[in-house]
Simulated scan of single mutants.
Amino acid sequence: MPAAAPPIAPAADHRLTAFGRRIHERRKALKVSATTAAEAAGVSRMTLHRIERGEPSVTMGAYMNAIAALGLDVDVIASTQATAPVPVSGGIRVTDYPQLRRLGWQLAPDTELTPEEAWGTYERNWRHVDASALDTRERALLEKLARALGKRPLHV
């Protein structure tokens, strides 16, 4: 059962509802099912629906995971409106690695990830990776990332 919603000011309630609506609109625009988006965000489908309704009892972490899973970004200080993601320069290009591209389906094709973001994407979604389809270059990337970040290698 969800936690009781904390009391919030009417203006904050309005913003949270608009925020949830923006998340829902983005998911629909991407033609992504609630189940798929929820899995990518690491939350239940019901939690995703609560986020899309702007419920205040959902943790901020869950909201942020949903935002990231749908390729959105938010500047909490400047605005409560979600904006399009800005590619990270000098990083790992998603399109250069087929399995990473599959895992990052919601990202713009020219998106570049930092080593930490790329590793996190592989690690969180490893169950969706077809290890037999990893080419030599992508295997080398995984090994290099594990060494550089001091992580245990994924089962490659």
Rank of each mutant, 00 (worst) to 15 (best):
A29G: 02
M60H: 11
L30M: 09
A66F: 07
E52P: 03
A82M: 13
R53P: 04
S89P: 12
N65A: 14
L70G: 02
G71W: 05
I67N: 03
E55D: 13
P98M: 03
R45S: 10
R27Q: 04
P85E: 14
P85N: 09
A66V: 04
A38S: 09
T59C: 01
L70T: 03
M46S: 15
K28L: 10
E112Q: 15
A66D: 03
T35P: 00
I77C: 03
T95F: 12
A38W: 02
P98V: 06
P85S: 11
R53M: 13
W105Q: 11
A34V: 13
P109Y: 07
A41L: 03
L107D: 13
E39S: 10
L100Q: 08
L103E: 02
G91Y: 10
G90Q: 13
E55S: 06
P109I: 08
E39A: 14
A82L: 14
A69D: 02
T59P: 00
I51E: 02
I67H: 02
G90F: 08
H49E: 15
G61K: 10
L100M: 11
G61D: 14
E117W: 00
P85G: 04
L70E: 03
T47C: 05
V74K: 06
L113T: 07
L100P: 07
R93Q: 13
A40K: 09
I51A: 04
D75H: 11
R45D: 12
E117P: 00
R93E: 13
R53A: 15
D110P: 11
P87I: 07
G90S: 13
A108V: 14
L113V: 05
R93T: 15
E55H: 06
L107S: 11
V86S: 15
L72S: 04
G54N: 05
T121D: 08
E116P: 00
L72A: 04
N65S: 13
G61I: 08
E117S: 09
A29V: 00
A66E: 02
T80E: 07
R50D: 15
W105E: 10
L70P: 01
G104D: 14
V94M: 09
A108G: 11
V94R: 05
A69F: 01
E116Q: 14
V94E: 05
L48W: 09
R27A: 02
I51L: 03
L30W: 01
V32R: 05
R26I: 03
Y63A: 06
R50A: 15
T35D: 09
A62W: 07
R102L: 07
A38V: 06
A108H: 12
A37M: 01
M60N: 08
G104R: 13
G42P: 06
H49G: 10
A62S: 15
E117R: 11
G120C: 07
L30G: 01
A34Q: 10
P109W: 03
T114Q: 05
T59V: 06
A38C: 05
Q81D: 14
I51W: 06
T83V: 13
R101C: 05
